[in-house]
Design a protein around this nucleic acid. Structure first.
Length: 498
RNA sequence: GCCCCCAUCGUCUAGAGGACUAGGACGUGGCCCUUUCAAGGCCAAAACAGGGGUUCGAAUCCCCUUGGGGGCACCA
């Protein structure tokens, strides 16, 4: 509707009040996709005008999380740019100037009502069943700057309607009587979101605003501000919010406690990273919430998405995050999109963190064993625990005994397997398979019985990657030692029972 | 309470008046493959919130109801 010919410049403007939320990441992603599609600029702006809620580590986390996702920005607090500074706390003077301008031109006024009076007014309004809000006591008092502590409020038109054209939803109309004379400049001299946002978007030459749904109610207020300033308002689109899996309200930090099917509900981007999701999978996943690639395709790169991405196609309905789908997608990326070396590289920090620092080379050897078996990076730890230590511990000797076998028969099987493997020249996988299957036949055992026993003996795990490949990675020497140890363990148990 | 937004399988979605016997994906169930676990292959169950219009014809347009969501701060 209000599509302009201006060069595309969009921004992601988080408030550093906490770590980057996945919903914020989605907003950033859609802005980034749009900017990149149109060869425009993606700007990072930090909206830190609320010093009471300021969290010092938040800005670093926001930037680290965006970088992790691959959402690079062209202008921002760390790299500067032609419209800087990009931290609102560093632009305070600008907001004060324009607040003064509004007062001079009759679009705003000073107000020294106390918070107590405001609260009292609201209470009375609520009691009367009216919409709570400022009663405009100071609107026509023409207070000067010498009244001590005060705020600056916007003089909202009292009549008429304001229509905002949302690129996703079409026109949204509000009655001006519903709109408040809201605060533009707080008594600490810093601007509220409304003033800072409008002033910055104007001077940073933002062409399109893409922000969360929850801002819709402020859009007409911002529209009126642009009008008062005589500035052109950027085109605007409100992205649907992400809902809590609990079924109530939007996704929030509180949901981290909410367990569904035993899975932790991830909320912050860093939690997705720590849980072992790949950034490319998270980006793919997020792109498909509120927007769809089309052609029934679920797996695609951001570049492919850019070609088709249109704001008009965004689904205005709020949605939950399909976490199950992310799990599946992550598996797809793990098994199909990364080379062996890349996957080993991604896996390494998780192994080191878990105290299983087996080195890159060993990891590269092990990757083919787990590739099709893991959904998240740390899943590999469960499969490969037998690689972490020289000595493994078989929890219960009974685990060695397969269905329809007994301890004696199992000991025999282990010894025979030992002899067979020890006699091998190398430790070739196919050769192992040929020999051991042959052995099982000779002993009148099913392959599963022999292999099951060996699996437990060699990995101390009921579940492991395929046995022959597994033994090859462990190495012949260690495998033989473990088979001996398992046989001895079982013998001890038998003696003990007698 | 008031204002605003939204509504297709359990979930994420395709669908922009006839091509819909409503498609895909995840998840779920079954079968196949199989040395455990996966992966893979095949199959299945599963939705247009309800009611009124408009139209020859409605998942698609309009209205109402219901349900969900957001907002109503010197927070963003």
């Amino acid at each position: 509707m209000s599509d302009t010919n201006r060069p595309v410049r969009v921004r992601f403007a988080p408030s550093p009040t906490g770590y980057l939320h996945i919903g914020g990441a989605r907003t950033a992603l859609f802005n980034w996709l749009f900017a990149r599609k149109h060869g425009g600029s993606f700007i990072l702006r930090i909206e830190d005008t609320d010093q009471s809620r300021y969290v010092p580590e938040a800005e670093d986390d926001i930037m680290a999380s965006l970088r992790w996702l691959g959402l690079n920005w062209d202008e921002g607090p760390d790299i500067g740019g032609k419209a800087g500074p990009y931290r609102q706390s560093e632009r305070a003077e600008l907001y004060r100037e324009w607040a003064d301008w509004l007062i001079e031109h009759g679009y705003a006024y000073r107000c020294n009502c106390s918070p107590e009076r405001l609260e009292k007014v609201r209470e009375e309004q609520r009691a009367r069943g009216e919409k709570p809000g400022y009663d405009r006591f100071c609107r026509d008092r023409n207070l000067g700057p010498d009244i001590g502590e005060h705020v600056v409020r916007f003089k909202m038109p009292l009549e008429g309607e304001t229509t905002v054209h949302d690129l996703i939803r079409g026109p949204i109309t509000f009655s001006n009587a519903e709109l408040q004379d809201l605060v533009l400049l707080k008594s600490d001299g810093l601007p509220t979101y409304h003033l800072a946002n409008v002033v910055d978007d104007h001077f940073m030459e933002i062409s399109h605003i893409m922000r969360a749904d929850e801002w819709i109610a402020t859009a007409p207020i911002h529209w009126q501000l642009y009008r008062a300033f005589g500035w052109e308002m950027p085109a605007i689109a409100h992205l649907p919010v992400i809902l809590s899996p609990s079924g109530h309200g939007k996704l929030s930090k509180r949901d981290q406690a909410f367990q569904e099917g035993g899975t932790k509900v991830l909320v912050q981007v860093r939690e997705f990273r720590e849980a072992g999701y790949l950034p490319e999978a998270v980006v793919n996943f997020l792109t498909n919430v509120g927007w769809a690639f089309g052609d029934d395709r679920e797996v695609f790169t951001p570049e492919e998405a850019m070609e088709r991405f249109e704001l008009e196609d965004i689904n205005p309905a709020p949605s939950k995050l399909p976490y199950d789908k992310l799990e599946w997608l992550n598996g797809v990326y793990i098994r199909e999109k990364l080379t062996t070396e890349e996957l080993a590289e991604r896996l390494e920090p998780f192994f080191v963190e878990a105290g299983c620092d087996i080195g890159r080379e060993k990891l590269i050897e092990a990757v083919p064993l787990v590739r099709n078996r893991i959904k998240t990076l740390p899943d590999a730890l469960d499969f490969l625990a037998f690689l972490c230590k020289d000595e493994i511990t078989i929890e219960d000797p009974q685990n060695l005994i397969q269905p329809k076998m007994d301890a004696q028969r199992t000991i025999e099987a282990l010894r025979a397997a030992y002899d067979t493997l020890a006699a091998m020249e190398g430790f070739d996988v196919e050769e192992q398979e040929r020999l051991l299957r042959g052995l099982a036949g000779e002993m009148g055992l099913k392959a599963g019985q022999l292999l099951g026993t060996l699996r437990e003996a060699v990995t101390a795990q009921k579940v492991s990657p395929p046995l022959f490949e597994t033994m090859a990675v462990i190495g012949k020497e260690t495998v033989l030692k473990r088979i001996v140890a398992a046989a001895e363990l079982l013998e001890k148990t038998v003696e003990h029972e007698n």
